[in-house]
């Protein structure tokens, strides 16, 4: 201990303190502050960059899932539309069929009616013509029969004879 105290040099202590304190203040102003600021800034910017990258990633993920969702929805919609279209098509076809059938039936029944009425008219005409022809023939026959008066008379007489009046 005594040796330590005897070795202690006040001059060296003075210069050491002066140099060290001088160095401390110089470095503080010209080195440590700019260095630490730069390092802190860099770290902050790295953290920011990481944050924004993370944000961009989540955004991208969101967009992707949104896209996926939209795609799914579109597919669903398409399916629904297709189904509806199919339904409508079937509906239309069955409606058309039904209507066609109805129409056909209607036309057929109309045709039948027409045929019936035509037939009736034709029959009527035929009846009329047959009647007049028959009358004509009958007239002609009668005319021919009535030409021979004797014979007629005979016949009438015969008929009269046969018929007994009571």
């Amino acid at each position: 201990m005594e040796k330590l105290i005897s070795e202690f040099s006040l001059g060296l202590f003075f210069w050491q303190s002066a140099i060290f304190i001088g160095l401390l203040f110089l470095l503080r102003k010209f080195a440590w502050k700019p260095i630490l600021n730069a390092v802190n800034e860099r770290e902050a910017s790295i953290i920011n960059a990481l944050d924004s990258a993370e944000k961009a990633r989540t955004q991208l993920e969101n967009i992707q899932s949104e896209n996926q969702r939209l795609l799914k929805e579109a597919r669903k919609e398409k399916e629904i539309l297709l189904k509806e279209a199919l339904k409508t098509k079937n509906q239309i076809i069955s409606d058309a069929k039904k209507e066609a059938q109805n129409e056909t039936e209607k036309i057929l029944s109309q045709a039948q009616d027409t045929i019936q009425s035509e037939k009736r008219a034709a029959l009527k005409e035929l009846k009329n013509q047959v009647g007049s022809i028959a009358i004509d023939i009958a007239e002609k026959v009668i005319n021919k029969e009535l030409e021979n008066k004797d014979k007629q008379m005979n016949l009438v007489n015969n008929l009269l004879k046969e018929t007994d009046f009571k």
């Binding site: 070795e7 202690f8 060296l12 050491q16």
Partner: peptide, 8 residues
């Protein structure tokens, strides 16, 4: 040196 370490 003891003076230097003392100063620090």
């Amino acid at each position: 040196n003891i003076a230097v370490t003392f100063g620090l």
